[in-house]
Design a protein around this nucleic acid. Structure first.
Lengths: 239, 239
DNA sequence: GTCATAGTGTACGAAATCGCACAGTATGTG
DNA sequence: CACATACTGTGCGATTTCGTACACTATGAC
């Protein structure tokens, strides 16, 4: 495909790369569409590519082996990140699934090319390594959120995180879907949604949630939001 | 200090290194004692050293900013791992705390030395990068465990994980402490302990839990244990 | 042996969440 | 327009876990 202009990209990892590092990757990029419901990576299957997200939203899910239990979301990725961290960390498999939750675009790069680029550039390793660190922080924050916060606060957290990554105020989310993301019952989401709507934080329509008052949402989410995001910003600047 | 013999070490990461990679690190190692309750790393403070654990047990804790809420455990590290992954990933700070939970020993290495060694050896990057991946999997599994399993199953999981890392059957654990680790009330741990004891899985004494029937514990923990551990073994072999 | 202290056992109402079932309502398709 | 389908709203008892309080008991220090 035709080569990408670095400055025309939205992916923040790619934008922060030096021209040399970008040049290592750019020739191999292939633009791909992210279709709703598609699995970008499968659990325990070889990862052929890494994906730098340009737009849309990806959920990282972990399987619980427990019969009857659904997959649980451990993290989300948007244009600030990438899917395929295991490649960066030296392996080609992972027990996680990357699910497209909101459609968008990404730049795909073959695993061997990324691997080679990482081995030839210390600074590239720095940027992607720090992104891995920020993901660890994000997952850790999810542990905290699930341990200490009720459904409403977690819903608020999730909405704000999604808004960040989609860069829009209207988010295409069904209750069914949110229940999966938060690991709760579907009616529990309905109730929590009403609460947020009653408080003027959001407007809920069929299959869509619109953010009305981000400040109030943040207030409700208290400490469960923010740490990972601040860490991400800090890490990106370190580059 | 005197140089370490690679084969006399217990740390599994160090043992799996090639002699050249080990040689990069060995001259800088300093043996340190891990004292109960000591913080090996502090949240958001510069990490001066990484620690390859020889014995004992370390908990990785994340602060919830929420007032009144306690720290929550997101992962544990024993002789299979290391503390100070952020250094491997290209930064010197992290919002997590590494708390010594059972005393032991570790080999400390100054961050700049580790950094330099990583930059000069692709294989070393491979081993420690894959360890980072295994930690991500472990934290993800914690998310699942907290979402889908009751206190008893989570207690069983935690006991088995601790047994793995201490290499003993008698574990120095108070209910108070376990309640912190599992993110539940202290009396909840007492009740769960009784259940496991009644089922012949453990013997509980003041400040100590002895594993009697690991098989039954695993059965109770169901899918919440095993995935991360299998992934660790797989990743170590890939080296 | 006495004593302070850390650790453990138990109780009980309150709250959150669950599991399930079913009714209602947008939305798009033919 | 009719209809199937997906999504949302609601109810209710069951269950888990919480918050809190208090009593009891090993254990080690003196």
């Amino acid at each position: 495909m035709s080569q990408q202009q670095q400055t025309s990209l939205r992916n923040r990892l790619l934008r922060v790369l030096g021209p040399n590092d970008f040049g290592l990757l750019a020739p191999a990029f292939e633009q791909v569409s992210l279709t709703l419901g598609h699995h970008l990576t499968e659990a325990n299957q070889p990862l052929g590519h890494a994906y730098f997200i340009e737009s849309g939203l990806i959920s990282l899910l972990a399987d619980t082996v427990r019969p009857g239990a659904n997959r649980v979301e451990i993290g989300i990725v948007g244009f600030e990140g990438m899917v395929g961290l295991p490649i960066v960390l030296g392996t080609r498999r992972s027990p996680h699934v990357a699910l497209v939750q909101a459609e968008g675009r990404a730049l795909a790069i073959p695993a061997p090319v990324l691997d080679e680029a990482l081995n030839s550039s210390r600074t590239l390793r720095g940027v992607l390594g720090r992104y891995a660190q920020s993901l660890i922080v994000q997952v850790g924050q999810t542990v905290c959120a699930n341990a200490d916060f009720n459904i409403e606060a977690r819903l608020a957290r999730w909405i704000v995180m999604t808004q960040d990554r989609l860069g829009r105020d209207d988010l295409p989310l069904t209750h069914e879907f949110l229940s999966l993301m938060l690991g709760v019952r579907r009616p529990g989401v309905t109730t929590a949604t009403h609460m947020l709507e009653g408080a003027g934080m959001i407007r809920a329509q069929r299959g869509r949630i619109t953010v009305l008052d981000r400040g109030k949402l943040l207030e409700l989410a208290e400490g469960s939001y923010g740490g990972a995001e601040a860490e991400y910003e800090r890490l990106l600047e370190e580059g």
